[in-house]
Design a binder for these strands. Structure first.
Lengths: 111, 111
DNA sequence: CGTGTAAGGAATTCTGACACG
DNA sequence: CGTGTAAGGAATTCTGACACG
């Protein structure tokens, strides 16, 4: 049992696909990482790998920047909402996520 | 409203990651495609893109082959179970999948 | 500050073929 | 039949820098 086996949080997506999914440029995506707003995994060779959750976060970041919020402010917001996380609530959400991943859609082979 | 917006069915994963996720070789993964058991998308440049559902299907395929079932037989099984699909049931599952994708885990920004 | 771009290199993936059996 | 491998090429991604402002 891993700490997170949900599809949504598995880092498996290349930057090229993230570009398509978000409409952002690769330059923007890498810059937001430089500003510590997003944290992709890396392959042994150095290629970035993102999750669907990362993709959604990137869209939210881009929206705020369009509204004139600076990356430094966005980072502070994210740190604040992190601290608000109640441990028990986090646990509940993770379990719910796993249930959705296992039983939310498919029933069995080819179904 | 697309016909499928679930994370599970979005084709966004490179063959290298599929190799890691399944433990199969790239040769095997490509061969199962040649035998019409799996149908990745392609980027404009020709790179294969798989979904999480594809990854799970690949594991099932590999298990059957280990059991001595030939690709041709596996293909027939898949075609049979496809026909069993009731249209109303498919519709229900797709809606459920969309609900899970939107409300099953996250509540809002950074939560 | 946030983003575009050209540059050069490295990692990744592709196809078709030969091999074994 | 299913899979490994070496071969050569093409697509993809990487970093650091210059530019604008």
């Amino acid at each position: 049992m891993e700490s997170d086996s949900s599809y949504k949080n598995k880092k498996v997506i290349n930057i090229g696909i993230v570009r398509e999914l978000t409409g952002l440029s690769e330059r923007q995506i890498r810059y937001y990482e430089e500003r510590k707003l997003i944290f992709p995994d890396r392959t042994p060779g150095g290629s970035r790998k993102y999750s669907f959750a990362d993709v959604e976060l990137l869209v939210e970041i881009a929206n705020k920047i369009e509204d004139g919020v600076q990356t430094h402010e966005i980072r502070k917001e994210m740190l604040r909402s992190q601290k608000k996380q109640n441990p028990e609530e986090i646990r509940r959400k993770m379990i719910q996520g796993q249930l959705n991943a296992q039983f939310g859609f498919r029933k069995g082979p080819y179904s």
